[in-house]
């Protein structure tokens, strides 16, 4: 493909195109990314079913390996939440666990060979397929917006409508009426920057990771055994490195979610 530049560009473009419903204009509002939704849904159900199964059979005696693993994950997440948030963890704990495991599983789709799922879906007659939901801005923004709404909800819940408004207009500069507008503008920017940065960070890392995989995969079809070997090495090394990235990104997303919601509880 590399012998004809159009081929490789097409290869990349093909990999970066979402699966959309065919009957709807591809740029329209309802042109949902079926692949992102399907993969995230399947992984979400997998996570829920897996943990539910282990929780259902949980014993207070010596746990089996599966239960011990689930317990390790749970304890790790709970420990992180406990460090950041000093309050009732009955909602925030499970939320953090869901965010961590779900994002991790979605990120882990990046480790699958980039052509594997597209080849399979092509056989089923579906033209495009992107396997990594977290490399889809819609997905990351969906999650970060949910977190944003939760921070608003908890701000109201922890401080009351009056307290929250008071804080919006008087922090951080002071109570003077002249400072109300600057305070509010600054708080607005701060509040809105959180979901944007949360979504963009995850999306950027995953999208870049996916793109690098695609670019290295281009070496396989570049012609010549030397380039094929280079592709093998590069793909493997990037894969190993990516194990670190997907874990760290899932961890960061989880911790920031907890931090943002915990900040909503803080009084200024």
């Amino acid at each position: 493909m590399a012998s004809e530049p159009g081929g490789f560009t097409e290869y990349i473009q093909h990999h970066l195109t979402f699966l959309k419903p065919p009957s709807i204009s591809p740029d329209g509002f309802w042109a949902v990314h079926i692949d992102s939704i399907a993969v995230s849904l399947v992984l979400g159900i997998l996570f829920c079913f897996w943990f539910w199964l282990k929780a259902r059979k949980a014993t207070s005696g010596v746990p089996g390996k599966g239960q011990a693993f689930v317990e390790l994950v749970l304890e790790f997440v709970d420990g992180q939440v406990k460090d950041v948030f000093h309050g009732d963890r009955r909602v925030l704990g499970p939320l953090a666990l869901t965010v961590f495991v779900w994002v991790f599983l979605m990120n882990a789709m990046d480790l699958l060979p980039v052509d594997l799922l597209p080849v399979i879906t092509a056989k089923l007659g579906l033209g495009h397929f992107r396997a990594v939901p977290t490399a889809d801005l819609n997905m990351t923004f969906a999650m970060s917006t949910t977190v944003f709404l939760l921070t608003i909800f908890y701000s109201f819940k922890a401080k009351g409508a009056g307290g929250f408004m008071h804080e919006l207009f008087t922090a951080p500069f002071g109570k003077h009426p002249l400072l109300w507008i600057p305070n509010f503008v600054l708080n607005l920017v701060e509040m809105l920057s959180k979901p944007v940065s949360l979504a963009m960070r995850l999306f950027g890392n995953m999208y870049a990771g996916e793109l690098v995989f695609i670019l290295i995969a281009g070496l396989f079809s570049a012609g010549g055994w030397a380039l094929y070997g280079l592709g093998l090495i590069g793909y493997t090394v990037w894969g190993i490195f990516h194990i670190l990235i997907i874990s760290i990104q899932a961890f960061i997303f989880m911790v920031l979610t907890v931090v943002y919601i915990s900040m909503a509880h803080d009084h200024h």
């Binding site: 093909h14 092509a122 995969a217 396989f220 093998l232 493997t236």
Partner: peptide
């Protein structure tokens, strides 16, 4: 998307990764 040597290479790398 055609099945070709690209996927084979990716699968080998994936196997190494596993």
């Amino acid at each position: 998307m055609e099945f070709n040597a690209t996927l084979i290479g990716e699968m080998i790398s994936f196997a190494i990764l596993i």
